[in-house]
């Protein structure tokens, strides 16, 4: 049976969600999206710059992809709700990544405002994926409020530092029923693989791919790492031990008995 990700009432193949920020150009971004084979892609909303004619990003996102707008820039639940409604009016579906940040230095999410936004937007029929600090109580509340997933950070946004929140994310994986998707901070394919090996349902990556020397090659590498990590999780990792356990026979002909 094919291993699909059940998320927001949809079933998708790829467990690598991709962000579209910071790419050097939309054509490069498009090639990276194709190389990663992502099914779910995030975008942001911004004021139109009247002084320049800019390309429409939507034309560079492969058509079968599910588009998920984020609420970046929001500092309160009300602002996140406003952005979500604008995104829906943009005609690209009702998936929304809630991102409420009041701290400009670390860009850490405000879980309380995020929860308030989740409660409102779920009632309005949105598929809501909250970006959050990995706190079990809050994750449970997000789940109870109807979040389609919880998205704990691995490290601060754009920091490429890897899964610094591992122990807390492991608790979420054990205790939360909706998919746990590590979002933010993953810097290398091995970070993504680590998340998948420990049982995350998916990961969301942007900066590590967008600012790599070869974003298209890096997108493919992340895609492969996510597949490998997921396979390892499904196969069940062998247990670790403090002492050696020979993988080749030690006895046979040099001496009678292993010492």
């Amino acid at each position: 049976m094919e291993d699909l990700l059940n998320l927001g009432g949809r079933q998708v193949k790829s467990r690598l969600l991709l962000g579209t920020g910071k790419f050097s150009s939309y054509p490069v971004m498009q090639k990276a999206l194709e190389a990663a084979a992502s099914d779910i892609v995030t975008v942001a909303l911004r004021r139109v710059d009247m002084s320049t004619q800019t390309d429409n990003i939507l034309e560079y996102i492969p058509k079968p992809c599910i588009l998920m707008a984020n609420t970046s820039g929001a500092r309160t639940a009300d602002e996140a709700v406003r952005i979500a409604r604008l995104a829906k009016a943009g005609g690209q579906g009702n998936w929304i990544k809630i991102e409420v940040v009041r701290d400009n230095k670390y860009l850490l999410p405000d879980n309380l405002e995020t929860l308030k936004a989740v409660e409102i937007l779920v009632k309005e029929g949105f598929i809501v994926l909250p970006y959050m600090s990995p706190d079990l109580s809050m994750a449970k509340r997000m789940e109870e409020a109807g979040a389609a997933a919880v998205m704990p950070l691995g490290a601060p946004i754009g920091s490429n530092r890897g899964l610094k929140t591992r122990e807390l994310v492991e608790i979420l994986i054990r205790e939360i029923r909706v998919p746990v998707i590590v979002d933010a901070g993953l810097g290398s394919p091995s970070d993504a693989c680590e998340c998948m090996e420990m049982g995350c349902a998916a990961v969301l990556v942007n900066t590590a791919i967008a600012i790599a020397c070869d974003p298209v090659g890096m997108a493919q590498a992340f895609g492969e790492a996510v597949i490998a990590g997921r396979r390892a999780y499904l196969a069940g990792l062998a247990s670790a031990a403090n002492e050696a356990s020979a993988s080749s026979p030690l006895t046979g002909f040099l001496r009678d008995e292993a010492r």
Binding site: G19, T20, K22, Y26, V43, A44, L45
Partner: peptide
């Protein structure tokens, strides 16, 4: 008046 469009974002 606010005039908004989609852009790249993570």
């Amino acid at each position: 008046i606010e005039i908004i469009s989609f852009v790249g974002g993570g």
